[in-house]
């Protein structure tokens, strides 16, 4: 059975573990490289991206996560999406650079500009699970905005025209916090990707030749 890893160096990993549990999947917390063993998909939670970067450097986690993302799905929310981005603005800072997106930190402003809004989502996301067809909430906490996306990036949900949840291959990045709602669709969607990738990678590399 699949196990979803949740980066737990800091941030709302606790809320993510509950959200993964709510769609019936197993999970484990990831704090060091060896914790990635046996993990079929990785969630980079919300939190402070500058703090995440210090821990990734300190624990030597950046390279193992990059390697992981070559063959397995990764989902970043808020600070996690900032880590996945190729380019980070406001201020410029290093990242894992795994997705062709530009992310602007704290794009709406400080905490007083945090808000709950309604997403416009593609059917492949909005029509799954028991909540299919109902409106999707976006909880934005000092949230970033995806200001540019490359050709390989597909938008799954928008907020007033801006991409809010994007997918590139089996990588997923969102500017909002589905883990702070009771709506299970985004986590369900990610766990489905992890299950599909898990199945196809059980084919031995030789058969691909």
């Amino acid at each position: 059975m699949a196990v979803i890893g949740i980066l737990a160096v800091q941030g709302d990993f606790d809320a993510h573990s509950k959200a993964v549990g709510a769609v019936g999947e197993r999970w484990k917390l990831v704090k060091k490289p060896s914790d990635l063993d046996g993990v079929s998909g990785l969630i980079l939670p919300g939190g402070e991206s500058t703090t995440f970067l210090k821990h990734l450097e300190e624990e030597g986690l950046a390279e193992p996560i990059r390697q992981f993302a070559r063959t397995k799905p990764v989902f970043g929310t808020c600070a996690g999406a900032i880590l996945l981005a190729e380019t980070v603005e406001n201020p410029a800072q290093p990242s894992l650079g795994l997705m062709q997106i530009t992310v602007r930190r704290n794009a709406y402003g400080r905490q007083l500009s945090s808000s709950i809004r309604t997403l416009t989502a593609e059917p492949e996301l909005s029509e799954i699970g028991p909540e299919a067809g109902t409106p999707m909430e976006a909880v934005l906490i000092r949230a970033p905005v995806i200001t540019a996306a490359g050709a390989q990036v597909r938008t799954l949900a928008r907020l007033q025209g801006d991409p809010a949840l994007v997918r590139q291959g089996f990588l997923l990045a969102g500017t909002f916090h589905p883990e702070l709602t009771t709506d299970t669709r985004v986590h369900r969607y990610f766990c489905q990707i992890a299950a599909q990738v898990g199945k196809s990678s059980s084919v031995s590399p030789a058969e691909h030749k």
Partner: peptide
């Protein structure tokens, strides 16, 4: 209720930190 979720939401983001 929404405002309370936003207030505690930021605290969630600060977990496991200093």
């Amino acid at each position: 209720e929404q405002l309370f979720r936003l207030k505690t939401g930021l605290a969630e983001m600060l977990k496991g930190g200093v």
